[in-house]
Computed example of a mutant assay.
Amino acid sequence: MRKLKNDGVQAAAFIFPSFLLLLIFSLIPALMNIFFSFTKFNVVQPPQIIGLANYGRLFKDPYIAASLRNTLVYMLLTVPFQTFISLVLAALLVEGFKNRFGEFIRSALFIPVIASNVLVGTLWAIMFQHQGIINGILGLFSINPVNWLGDKNTAIVSVSIVSVWKDIGYYLVIYYAGIMDIPATYYEAARVDGAGTFQRFWYITIPSLKPVTYLILTMGTIWSFQVFDIIYTMTGGGPGLSTLTLVYTVYTSAFKEFNMGYAACTALLLLCFVLILSLIQKRVLRGAGGSE
């Protein structure tokens, strides 16, 4: 009993520092956010309890409706494409490039992941300018210049392209590790049975990677709802409200209007949508055999 008690004390001692950090930087701020959502608070003056007034405004605010719509569009433009492209690239590298060239490709595609979002957004904003390199390439094929960041119909697409380009390398590494973890005997048996490359990919690789795909879809969805710096540097939420997102609305309410209570309320709305979408993904993939 004494040994078990000592083991328990030692375990608690190891856990306590992490728990303390989690409490200070996650749990307490989350509870404070809930409290501030029921207040009128401008940082300078003490918070005033106003009940559900912020929530009543939330459902009438056209900026919230626009930001929610844009966030969902951004998620649909980024998550499926970055998941599909990274999966295909990982499968191609495993299938035909288990060499130094494949290592170089993986490293090269991972460079944008570690690059600053502000730097990436600034560089791509320059490339998307009317006289930028993107329109220059289109001009080689006799295609008229496109107002990528100044047109409401193309601005969110442009931002999504940059996000997909930046994140592919991260998901590629995860998929690559997942494919390498699949027993080689599965592929050897499939080759003996005459299965081609596509058949092996479709019937072995994809089903075996369902837990990995669930992880990637969940992370991609959460990160897509948190997009801010790329939009801040590329479009500033414009033109009009075409690239305004929930996080950008939180930033505007908190640090431009100094309405911390309304910003906290919007942040809770963001949390609710992320939780709902994560639960939907979990149910869908569980139904497909993706998770236990």
Rank of each mutant, 00 (worst) to 15 (best):
I133H: 02
I134H: 09
N135V: 00
G136H: 09
I137S: 01
I137C: 09
L138P: 13
L138T: 08
L138Q: 10
L138S: 12
L138D: 08
L140W: 13
S142N: 13
N144S: 07
P145W: 07
P145V: 10
P145Y: 09
V146L: 12
W148K: 10
W148T: 14
L149P: 03
L149G: 03
G150E: 09
D151M: 04
K152H: 06
N153H: 14
N153L: 15
T154D: 05
A155S: 09
A155F: 05
I156H: 06
S158W: 02
V159A: 13
V159G: 10
S160W: 00
V162N: 01
V162R: 01
V162S: 01
S163W: 07
S163C: 07
W165E: 03
K166S: 06
K166D: 06
D167P: 00
D167M: 04
D167T: 08
I168M: 07
I168G: 02
Y170C: 12
Y171V: 08
Y171M: 06
L172R: 03
I174W: 01
I174R: 03
Y175V: 05
Y175E: 05
Y175K: 08
A177P: 05
A177H: 05
A177I: 05
G178M: 11
I179W: 11
I179P: 09
M180T: 00
D181I: 05
D181E: 15
I182N: 02
P183T: 14
P183C: 12
T185G: 00
Y187C: 06
Y187N: 08
Y187A: 04
Y187K: 01
E188D: 14
E188K: 14
E188H: 10
A189E: 06
A190E: 12
R191W: 04
R191D: 06
V192Q: 11
D193Q: 01
D193S: 09
G194H: 08
A195D: 00
A195C: 03
T197D: 02
T197M: 12
F198E: 03
F198G: 09
R200Y: 10
R200V: 03
W202S: 14
Y203Q: 09
Y203H: 14
Y203L: 13
I204N: 06
P207E: 02
P207A: 03
P207S: 00
S208Q: 08
P211S: 01
T213C: 07
T213H: 03
Y214Q: 14
L215Q: 04
L215Y: 04
L215K: 02
I216P: 08
I216C: 12
L217G: 09
L217S: 03
M219W: 11
